[in-house]
Design a protein around this nucleic acid. Sequence first.
DNA 1: GATTACATGTAACATGTTACATGATTAC
DNA 2: GTAATCATGTAACATGTTACATGTAATC
Lengths: 213, 213
Amino acid sequence: MARQGATTTTFAILGLLAAGPGSPYELNQRLQLSCGYFWPRARSQVFTEVKRLASLEWATGAVLLNGRRARTEYTITDLGMRALQRWLHTTPAIFDLEFEHLVRVYLAGFASPADLLGVFDDAEQRAAAMLALADQVIDGYEHGQIDGPHDEPHLRVLLVDYLANLAQLTVDWAQRSRADVRSWDPDLSVRRDHALARLSHLPRKPSGEPIEQ
Amino acid sequence: MARQGATTTTFAILGLLAAGPGSPYELNQRLQLSCGYFWPRARSQVFTEVKRLASLEWATGAVLLNGRRARTEYTITDLGMRALQRWLHTTPAIFDLEFEHLVRVYLAGFASPADLLGVFDDAEQRAAAMLALADQVIDGYEHGQIDGPHDEPHLRVLLVDYLANLAQLTVDWAQRSRADVRSWDPDLSVRRDHALARLSHLPRKPSGEPIEQ
DNA sequence: GATTACATGTAACATGTTACATGATTAC
DNA sequence: GTAATCATGTAACATGTTACATGTAATC
């Protein structure tokens, strides 16, 4: 029995399945490649989720033999297709960032400046890797090598837009933060004034526009 | 017994404790207010983590009575202080985004354009709330109302810089995505060309700079 | 004094990860 | 033919959340 109801992960995999049948192994590859940066999940979970899909009758699993070894190929059902569409009609719930680097920035008062600089280095490297992947994807589109159910450029550009800009933002932040820390004045009150000046230039809520409920 | 070793959450709470003793309830408030946007955790976990801290002897818990009701005030130990500093000297490991909205963008081929527009609306609202909080924080600094161990402006500006810009990025992305979807051409090949043009203007890895290992 | 909000915790449970085990395929 | 890699899964476990339970303080 599947443990409980369906989660976002369930629907993510259901959505992958909507693009065509596949084994858990293949589904995992699609998941890592396409959703790795905004919905990261371990490989093993794909195996448990497809079972849940089967128990909900949103997908059927056909056991194929390959030598002595079984391999299960899952296919979405009509019921699954409708469940996916219903879900896509609901409001998204999760917008979580788990950024350990910021925890360390928050606690930097107890660390050395060198430690803090290392945090920015690491953040920059990760973001640069993300940018490199975005670059590859864009390259693929420019050379017409990408073509699949979720790959229409007019949709995909919306995704890559967010991710590439997030990566760039992170690189920029790491670089200017590093420069800032390196240029800290020994005089704490100077440091403080400089910080307050920087704070006042950050993006802020435009005061005229109330947030709609 | 604490279940296992220490996690990032453990150290986050240890770090909060480094700013001064407190009950789990107070610690939770600090956690939500300060780290809610980059290290979100449920209230109940604070209660289990302080127990772990106690079992590691990184903090001591003093049971105070308030009427018939016990309240445990935790204080960091020297051992805990050193553990915190050692941890701050290691490399950060987690940079995870869980953005359900992007899952829906990825699967938008199976949804209606109206559903997709709703995704942008929701993302914008959440990001606007984030901006509003950043605004409050900046305001607090400008009026000299913020003063605490983790609150030195020259450190805090590094955090708020990231979060405010992330929020702004998300608002901007939601707005231009909405406009993009609204202006979709019925002719798919026009839509495609437009998308490819947009893709080519996104941030990309600067080809000259190899990523350092 | 009743209601609501604040404060303090626990227990059950779901989600998700790491580690393990092993069969098939490819490269050498 | 042997080693490495690809493919397929399971089991144990840790992390983290939701729901519950209840005492205390403030409000009216």
